[in-house]
Amino acid sequence: MIDRLNMALRRLPSWPLYILGAVPAIAWFRLALLNRLGADPVRALEHEYGLIALQLLIAALCITPLREIVGLNLLRFRRAIGQLAFVYALLHFIVWLWLDRQFDWPRIAEDLLKRPYIIVGFAALLLLLPLALTSTDSAIRRLGGARWRRLHRLAYPATLLAGLHFIWLVKAWPAEPLLYGAGIVLLLAWRAVRSRRKGARRAMPQKFRANEKKLS
């Protein structure tokens, strides 16, 4: 069943994801221009772009566990998901600079230096920048697989910071940001446990490793 799904997915191209991904950005911007995003359209637009960026970052982190736990292989769509996450984070930042802070540079500088939740959000965006710039086949070749993979582990702190940014900006302790935060922590914890296990296995002498295979 999973195998057949994987076969079918292999035939699908990834380019439609870019078109699909552009739809909400355009639709929400259109609604903002038409003043149909409620009483505070700037906040609504800013929030929506930020939320989509966070959801895409989390989606990208789900690819590996889906493959290893469920056997579903969506690896070839991860690049598009990651690039779209960066674009939405950038749109979120631009809406903040332009429509929210209205290019009031002294206040923007103050926010970026003094407000922890803004610093954390901006740091997440900066961490994503090298990843967006190296999300090409030629960059992988240039860097080599191992270095490229190490660089792209920046997605972990970036997503963690993005989740923290969300929790930190709200008043009190509403459910939504906490649930996103919990999801991110769970995905990163799974990776930590897995890499420790792999490391332990690598450290084991050859004869034990053979035994382990028999046991499992």
Binding site: A32, L33, N35, A39, D40, P41, V42, R43, L45, L99, D100, Q102, D104, R107, E110, D111, K114, R115, P116, Y117, W168, L169
Partner: peptide
Amino acid sequence: VSHPRWSQATERVIGAGVFAPR
């Protein structure tokens, strides 16, 4: 006097539209 997490120097005017100045 800022809120510890954000500035209180300006405000967004509800109902003024997307491009209205703060």
